[in-house]
Amino acid sequence: MNFRQRGRNPRLNVAVPIITKKRKGAEAFSLRLLLTLSLCLFALPSVALTGEEIIDQVDKNMTFGTARTEAKMVIHVSGQERVKTMASYSEGEDKSFSEFLSPPRDKGVKYLKIGDNMWMYLPSVDKIIKIAGHMLKQSMMGSDFSYEDALESNKLKEKYAVQLVSQETIYIKFRRGTEEVTKARPCYVLDLTAKVKDVNYHKIRIWVDREIFVPVREELFALSGKKLKVMILGDVQKHGSRYYPRYVSMKNLLREDSLTEMIITDIKFDVRIPKDTFTQRNLKN
């Protein structure tokens, strides 16, 4: 094994010479030390990652060129459950086009997002509505996600300072199909603190799976430090070299029993997206 090659961290280069300078009489000891150290060094490359680097790794998983998704949204409100299904195309972070397929009353409702703008099409009246101003702060289709949440850019690094806080193993509860799954995952805990003022959440705490670099839990905080929302991501599946969660839930902590789950039933990356998908004209088709 080649330490030097793997360890990009300068600290590694310093550590090795120290070991070679050990006295011969202490060989057995030093051998054991070497063994322990080398074990540590196996782990070290990841431990030594900075917060920023972890986020970079996450981004590799979570961002993509294009994708086609089919998903199911389950909204729990005061004991009731409402299920909506949708299909969407996305291109990068800036463009997406979604269409609701069920229930019947929502069938044909379409959303188009281009950059910071969002439009909605209501088939019952054949009208396009631009979602702006106060509407942005409202819940999207009655879920715990607001339109704002949907628009919020994933490029967190630009707006937030990332800091690796600790590592811990947490339990994640999610749904896979119909079964409930609880999994223990070793995670990095990252604190993202806003560098600029115009962000919705001043602080975000993210738990990133240490092995596959997928975020599994996010907590969103107010400026005062009060926790407002909790997001859980689970049911991670491998798509080529990419790990991607198929389950996302969002819970608003200031509201009693409200929870929204988003379950991806089918996702394909790097698909060819029909021309003119991301146009207002397409909303009316």
């Binding site: 806003a194 003022k197 962000v199 919705n200 005062s224 009060k226 200031l254």
Partner: peptide
């Protein structure tokens, strides 16, 4: 009581 508001810069703010 908890009050939830937006700061001048639209950041969520909540106080107990």
């Amino acid at each position: 009581m908890t009050i939830l508001m937006r700061t001048k810069y639209d950041t969520f703010q909540a106080l107990d």
